[in-house]
Deep mutational scan, measured.
Amino acid sequence: KELVLVLYDYQEKSPREVTVKKGDILTLLNSTNKDWWKVEVDDRQGFIPAAYLKKL
């Protein structure tokens, strides 16, 4: 499984997104879309802008 580091706080703006904090380490589920990556946060799955994440 691939992990990503959150570079900036992000507040979800729709039900398909998730809220994260800078410094969080998340499981990356899908990065095929270059703009929005799907991650897992506390048993929730959702999207975050790829620019907010860095692969570890």
Score class of each variant (00 low, 15 high):
Thr19Tyr: 03
Gln11Gly: 08
Val41Pro: 00
Leu29Gly: 01
Lys21His: 13
Trp36Gly: 02
Ala51Gln: 10
Val6Cys: 07
Pro49Glu: 03
Arg16Ser: 13
Asp35Pro: 02
Ser31Phe: 07
Tyr10Leu: 01
Tyr10Gly: 00
Tyr8Met: 14
Thr27His: 15
Val4Pro: 00
Glu12Ala: 15
Val6Met: 02
Leu5Val: 11
Asp9Asn: 09
Lys22Thr: 07
Val6Gly: 00
Lys21Asn: 08
Thr32Ala: 15
Leu5Thr: 06
Ala50Arg: 13
Gly46Glu: 07
Lys38Glu: 12
Ile48Trp: 01
Glu12His: 07
Ala51Tyr: 15
Tyr52Gly: 08
Asp35His: 15
Ala51Phe: 14
Tyr10Gln: 01
Ser31Met: 08
Glu17Phe: 05
Glu40Phe: 06
Leu26Gly: 13
Val18Tyr: 03
Glu17Ala: 05
Lys55Ala: 07
Gly23Glu: 02
Ser31Cys: 09
Ala51Cys: 11
Val20Gly: 05
Val4Thr: 03
Gln11His: 14
Lys21Phe: 11
Lys21Trp: 11
Thr27Asn: 12
Asp9Phe: 03
Lys1Met: 13
Asn30Val: 09
Thr32Arg: 11
Val41Phe: 10
Lys34Glu: 14
Lys38Trp: 13
Glu2Arg: 11
Leu29Gln: 04
Lys54Cys: 11
Ile25Tyr: 05
Arg16Leu: 14
Leu56Lys: 03
Lys22Met: 08
Ile48Gln: 00
Thr19Asp: 03
Lys34Val: 12
Glu2Val: 15
Thr27Met: 12
Leu53Asp: 00
Trp37Arg: 00
Asn30Cys: 09
Asp43Met: 10
Val6Pro: 00
Phe47Leu: 09
Trp36Val: 05
Lys34Asn: 12
Lys1Ile: 15
Asp35Thr: 14
Lys1Trp: 13
Ser14Thr: 12
Gly46Val: 15
Ala51Pro: 12
Phe47Trp: 15
Lys54Ala: 12
Leu28Val: 06
Ile48Phe: 02
Pro49His: 04
Glu40Ser: 10
Asp24Val: 08
Val20Met: 02
Leu7Thr: 04
Gln11Glu: 15
Lys21Tyr: 14
Arg16Tyr: 14
Lys13Met: 11
Gln11Phe: 15
Asp9Leu: 02
Lys55Asn: 06
Asp42Cys: 10
Gln45Tyr: 10
Val39Leu: 04
Ala50Asn: 04
Glu40Thr: 08
Lys1Cys: 10
Val41Ser: 12
Lys13Asp: 06
Gln45Gly: 06
Asn30Glu: 15
Ser14Met: 08
Asp43Lys: 10
Trp36Asn: 03
Tyr52Ser: 07
Thr32Met: 14
Glu2Gln: 12
Val6His: 00
Asn33Pro: 05
Asn30Asp: 14
Thr27Gln: 14
Asp24Lys: 07
Lys1Leu: 13
Thr32Ile: 11
Leu3Gly: 04
Asp35Cys: 11
Lys13Pro: 04
Leu56Arg: 03
Gly46Trp: 06
Leu53His: 00
Thr32Tyr: 10
Gly23Val: 01
Asn33Gly: 10
Thr27Glu: 11
Gly23Met: 03
Glu12Leu: 12
Trp36Thr: 03
Thr19Ser: 14
Arg44Trp: 12
Lys54Gly: 06
Gln45Met: 10
Lys1Gln: 14
Asp42Thr: 09
Leu53Lys: 00
Glu2Ala: 13
Ser14Ile: 05
Leu53Asn: 01
Val39Asp: 00
Tyr8Trp: 12
Lys54Glu: 11
Val18Thr: 04
Lys13Ala: 11
Val6Tyr: 00
Thr32Phe: 10
Val18Glu: 02
Val39Lys: 00
Asp9Ser: 10
Glu40Val: 11
Leu5Ser: 04
Lys22His: 06
Ala51His: 15
Phe47His: 06
Asp9Pro: 07
Val18Ser: 02
Pro49Tyr: 03
Tyr8Lys: 12
Ala50Cys: 08
Asn30Trp: 08
Lys22Phe: 05
Arg44Asn: 06
Lys55Ser: 06
Asp43Ile: 08
Ile25Ser: 02
Leu3Trp: 14
Asp43Asn: 14
Pro15His: 10
Leu28Cys: 09
